[in-house]
Every structure is written in C-alpha cells, then in structure tokens.
C-alpha cells in the first residue's frame, strides 16, 4: 500500500483497535480478551521525517496531544528503529473512547496501532508473529497486546525474547461482557505493591487448576465452569481493596443469575462480568454498587470480539 496514492481521502490509514481485559481471573499475566470497545487512529497526511502532529478527541484529549509523549508515536518510532526504516512524519487524529489507566488496555491500543502504522507506511509485510513480538517488547508483556492485535481470547507466554500464544474460540453471541469503570486511578506502582512478594504453595496450585480449567472451558464451550476458572488467589483479592466498592462489587455480581464469572480487568480498577442472556440486572447492580460507594463511574455493555485490530485504507 502506498498512502500517497490517496491524496484526496480523509485519511491515509485508519486503525481500529479494541479494548482488552487482561489478567483475566486465574490467568494472571497470561490470559487476555478483546472487547468491542474501540479506539480509532487516523493518519491524516504524511509530514516530513520526524515531524508529527496529534489531535485527540475523547478520552485523554488533555494529556495525549503532545506528539513527544504520545505512546502511539513513540511505539511507531520504536518499530521503525527495530526494522531500520525511515520514520515518516504524519498528522495523527485519535478518537479515543477507552478510558485511560483503568485496566482496559488503552495504552496497548496505542502500541499496537503504532507498530502497525510503521509497518504499513514502510510497505513491509511482516509476519504476525514478528509484529506481535515487537508489540510485546514495547509493552513489556503480551497479555494485552496479543488479544488487542489478534482479537478473541488469547493465552500468551513471553520469556523476554520469544513469544508463544494461542487464540481461543470466540464467545457465543448471547454472552455479554459488562464493564464497570470507576473514576479512580489505581497507579501501576500501587497495583504492583499490593501483591504479595511470595505466594503460598497452596495458592499457586489453586491458580494452576483454575487457569487450566478456564482455558479448557473456553476451548470447549463449557461455560458453566467459567465462575471457577475466573476465581483467583494471586491478585484480585489484593487489588480489589485499592478502589471503593471493589471487594463488594465482585461478591454482589457473582451470584446474580446469568453471571458466569467476574474479574478485575488488568490491574484494575475496572471490573468485568461475563453474562449470558440479558445483562440488565448485572449492569444495574454494578451501577448501584459504585454509586453507593460515592464513586462516579462509566459502564459499558460489550462483547468479546473475535476480530482484532483492523487497518482500513481508502481502497479497502
């Protein structure tokens, strides 16, 4: 694709990137799911090498508009460096709806889009595995960028150099993912500090069993096992204390009929519930819980999307 072929189009490239819920239940640092909530990044026009402009609409409009600190542009430059290609400058337009720093993989959307824009503008046809390796190197872990790029539910392992991943089958059509996003920011450093430095052997065994069950249940559509599979002893009990209503909401939602599992998304504070059938009762309970704790919140009814990042050019 040569973007210069389309000088009269509103954009040269448009990248539509899904939110993700990582650390899913027992799958700490391993399992992640793409959600049907999308940031859209448009490359409006090319600029001279090293020159960038950035317009942000929606989430992060006040803090992401400086190209020098914009994560998409930083990831673009890192990818260009990895592949040894000239970093064309460009005018970027971001339509952000994924809340920032709330555990829904907002930063991963920027990393994935930056790498794919670098690949597209350079005219490379880099294989999927290598693209994902570069994304993981930039992000530092694969559990958000893998589902963000590939879509669906992914199991991913990373040893610092090599990446192994498997994409699981999609969720059924009548499965909703209700996401409650309290308007409190849990700093990454606090989320890390909240975790114990050592893990009891029994807790490790507990999580091994639950993570294996979660993957097996997902692979075979045995959704009745999700509640167990999304149980966890390594991170959720510690991180749910970091935001008002965190502990209460998990307990209240878990037992509502139709709720198949509930988990903290990423390192929080977003809480996601998988619901089969009508999501209204779970949705209302989540709203009520955060309201009772005096926390303003955003709520989304989403689905696990099998489609990952999509690049659109005026010809496509």
């Amino acid at each position: 694709m040569n973007p210069m072929n389309f000088p009269h189009s509103p954009f040269l490239l448009s990248v539509r990137v899904p939110a993700t819920s990582a650390n899913l239940g027992a799958g700490f640092d391993t399992l992640g799911m793409a959600l049907s909530l999308y940031n859209v990044f448009n490359v409006k026009e090319l600029l001279p090498e090293g020159e960038f402009s950035c317009q942000v609409v929606g989430e992060g409009a006040r803090v992401l508009s400086d190209p020098r600190s914009n994560m998409l542009i930083q990831s673009y430059l890192r990818a260009c460096e990895v592949w040894g290609v000239k970093p064309e400058g460009f005018a970027l337009e971001c339509h952000n709806v994924i809340p920032l720093c709330r555990g829904l993989g907002s930063s991963s959307t920027a990393v994935v889009a930056g790498v794919l824009i670098a690949n597209a503008l350079a005219g490379l046809r880099t294989p999927e595995t290598e693209l994902l390796r570069v994304m993981t190197t930039i992000e530092g872990h694969p559990d958000n960028v893998a589902p963000c790029f590939l879509g669906g539910m992914t199991v991913s392992c990373w040893d610092g150099e090599e990446l192994r991943y498997v994409k699981l089958p999609p969720l059924p059509d009548d499965m909703h993912v209700v996401a409650a996003v309290p308007d409190v920011q849990v700093r990454t450093v606090d989320a890390r500090r909240a975790l114990p430095k050592e893990v009891q052997f029994g807790d490790a065994v507990f999580n091994l069993g639950r993570a294996a069950l979660l993957c097996a249940a997902w692979a075979t559509s045995r959704w009745e096992h999700l509640a167990w599979g999304m149980d966890d002893r390594l991170h959720q009990q510690y991180r749910s204390r970091l935001f008002p209503g965190g502990e209460v909401i998990m307990d209240r939602v878990r037992d509502i009929p139709g709720c198949l599992g509930v988990a903290i998304s990423g390192s929080g504070p977003t809480v996601v519930a998988l619901v089969r059938g009508g999501p209204g009762r779970v949705a209302s309970e989540m709203c009520r819980t955060f309201s009772e704790h005096g926390v303003a919140s955003q709520f989304f009814v989403l689905e696990g999307t099998a489609e990952g990042t999509r690049i659109v050019t005026p010809k496509s």
Binding site: S36, H95, A283, R288, F299
Partner: peptide, 22 residues
C-alpha cells in the same frame, strides 16, 4: 435496548455502547 444497540453498533462500526442506570 442493549441487545438492539449491540446489533446496530456492530453493523455500523460504531466504537461502543455505554450505559448508566444510576
């Protein structure tokens, strides 16, 4: 309402659906 919106959002490539009952 959510089910109707979910179908339409998918069909028209919108960015998502949010709600608030409180």
């Amino acid at each position: 309402a959510v089910e109707a919106c979910r179908q339409v959002v998918k069909a028209i490539d919108a960015q998502g659906v949010s709600f608030n009952t409180e």
